[in-house]
Simulated scan of single mutants.
Amino acid sequence: MVGSLESHDDVCAELCLATDAAVVAVDYRLAPEHRHPAQLDDVATVFAAVARAFATVAVAGDSAGATLVAGLCVRLARQGKPKPAGAVLIYPWLGGELDWPSYIDNAEAPMLRTSDLSFYAEARYGGSVPAGPLDEAMPLEATDFGIFPPSFVVTADVDPLRDDGSVFAARLTEAGVPATCRNEAQLVHGFLRARHRSARARVAFEAIGAALRDLLGARQT
């Protein structure tokens, strides 16, 4: 619903410096003017073009962007297409249950409250049920977690979505997919914005850059 190429331009530029890789940001359509799956359609279109141009491609996103990264992997598997080299999901929203501890303990967390998620879901779907395959909108609904690429998942401890990331990483591990979940103590949803003011956020951002380098390997794109 919010954000733009401009809002994340500095993040993308710094990831480019950290990885020595080309970084492509997707200017996907926003809700509520454009409902799901418009955003995922845009991401899939851009990924297909990038995959044709580069031999090795990793995907990364934060918050709703992380939702789209995971949804893209589900769609690629459904279409029988190759998965990305790796994925980085930063405080992702993946369709967790409202009775999970993080949704309860962090119900009134700064930056994102549990009640906000219902508002965003209504805006994104235009109702309570997403159009199209449920697992493309809520990747935790996937029946086979072996479809996902090696992943680095970052969560904020003071965030209703904390458990989405940890559960997702655990299911990847159970499916035999290399996955790491890094939970950032005392940080809130959206902490990337504070990476130049908070030592904790800065260290987390450095870890994200290192993870992307590892996922891309010697052939960085």
Rank of each mutant, 00 (worst) to 15 (best):
D62V: 09
W100N: 02
P178H: 04
A131C: 04
T114M: 02
A22W: 10
A156P: 04
F47Q: 08
R197T: 12
A123Q: 07
V46G: 09
D42A: 11
V2F: 08
P37F: 15
A87E: 10
S128L: 04
A87P: 13
V43H: 00
E141L: 00
T45D: 01
G96R: 00
L161R: 10
R78S: 07
R193H: 13
S166G: 05
R202Q: 15
F47C: 09
P92C: 13
A170E: 05
A77G: 06
Y103C: 03
D105F: 00
M1T: 01
R200D: 12
G209K: 04
P130V: 07
L161V: 07
A169H: 02
Q39D: 00
A210T: 02
Y28A: 05
A64R: 08
L134I: 14
A31M: 06
E136Y: 01
L30K: 07
P101A: 07
L212D: 04
A175D: 08
L192Q: 12
A170V: 01
R193Q: 14
L112D: 02
L30N: 11
A156Q: 11
T19M: 00
V57M: 13
A66S: 04
L30H: 00
T221F: 13
D9P: 08
P110Q: 06
A185F: 15
R162D: 05
L112M: 05
P32W: 11
T56D: 10
R29Q: 08
A22F: 01
N183P: 11
A169R: 02
A18I: 01
T19K: 01
V24L: 10
K83E: 15
T180D: 11
D105L: 03
P178V: 09
L94P: 03
A87G: 05
E6Y: 03
P110A: 03
E33D: 15
E184W: 09
V24R: 03
V153G: 01
I208L: 11
T221P: 15
A131N: 03
V177D: 14
A64G: 12
